[in-house]
Design a protein around this nucleic acid. Structure first.
Lengths: 123, 123
DNA sequence: CCACGTGATATTTCTCTGTATATAACGGGA
DNA sequence: TCCCGTTATATACAGAGAAATATCACGTGG
C-alpha cells in the first residue's frame, strides 16, 4: 500500500566526524528520549536498547561536538539523571531541519524511484 | 582545513526495500565500477573488496528492483563478464541525481552544522 | 581436448559488535 | 545510617557479518 511506499522512501541523514557517526537517526531519537525522560537509562528502556549502548552513543555525541550534548548528574534525588544541554537542543533542532529539507528535496524523485523497486511479493 | 569540513559534510542516501538496502553509496559505486570494467571480479578488485561481497551486493540489487540491474555471462571469451542493464543505468542516474539534490538542499545548514562539531584535535 | 578467467556457491575462520552481567561511586531521602 | 536508582565502567559471552579459502560450472580459443 501507499503507506509502505512512504516508509520505504525515508532518506537517512548522517553527520560524520572522521569515521565516527557524530549524529544520525538513532542518536537523534535517543537525544529526544533523554530530553523527555530526564535519564539515560529511562531513554534506553523506552527505546528498547541496553543502557551500555545508550551510554556509548551519548559518549560519542559528547565527544564529537564542541561541547557535551548531554549533561549527567550522578547520585541525588532519583539516583541521578541526564539533561540535554542548550547545544544539544540546538544540534537536534538543526538535524531535524536538515532531515525534513532533504526529504522534501528528494521526495519527487523518490516517488519515481519507488516505481522501479520490486513488488512486495516478487517472482 | 576547509577540505576536511567538506569531506565530513557528505550526506549519505540509502533506498530501503523492507529492511534491506536496495541501493546506497557503496552499491552505486560498485555499479559504476561494473559498468566501467565489464566484470564483477574486476570491479571488486578495483574497489578493494572480495568477489564474494561484490557478488552479494549485486544479488541484493537484482532482487530489490523490478528487474536485474546487472546481467551476467558465464563462460565465453575472457571467462565471462557482467553488464549493467538499461534499468541499472536508469537507477544509477536517478540515484546520483537524488544524491546531488539532497546535498544541495542541505548544504547551507550543513555548513552551520560543521561549526558545532569538535575541532580535529579535541581537548 | 585442454587451459583459462569468470561467475556461482559452499565452507571455514576471524573479527567485530552488541548484550548481558557485575561492580563501584554518588548523594539525597527515609 | 542505610537504601535507592542512576551514572560509570569492566569483563565475559554470543551472534552477526566479513573475509579467506576451496570447489564447480561454463564456454570460447588455442
Amino acid at each position: 500500500m501507499a503507506r509502505d511506499r512512504a516508509r520505504i522512501a525515508k532518506p537517512r541523514l548522517r553527520i560524520l566526524m572522521g569515521s565516527e557517526i557524530a549524529i544520525g537517526p538513532g542518536k537523534a531519537d535517543l537525544l529526544e528520549a533523554i530530553a523527555g525522560s530526564g535519564s539515560i537509562s529511562a531513554a534506553a528502556r523506552q527505546m528498547g536498547m541496553s543502557y551500555r549502548r545508550a551510554w556509548t552513543l551519548v559518549e560519542v555525541m559528547n565527544r564529537s561536538f564542541r561541547g557535551p550534548l548531554v549533561d549527567t548528574l550522578t547520585g541525588g534525588t532519583g539516583g541521578g539523571g541526564a539533561r540535554v544541554t542548550e547545544l544539544g537542543a540546538d544540534v537536534l533542532a538543526r538535524y531535524r531541519a536538515m532531515e525534513t529539507r532533504a526529504a522534501v528535496a528528494v521526495a519527487p524523485e523518490m516517488r519515481a524511484f519507488a516505481r522501479l523497486l520490486a513488488s512486495p511479493g516478487k517472482p
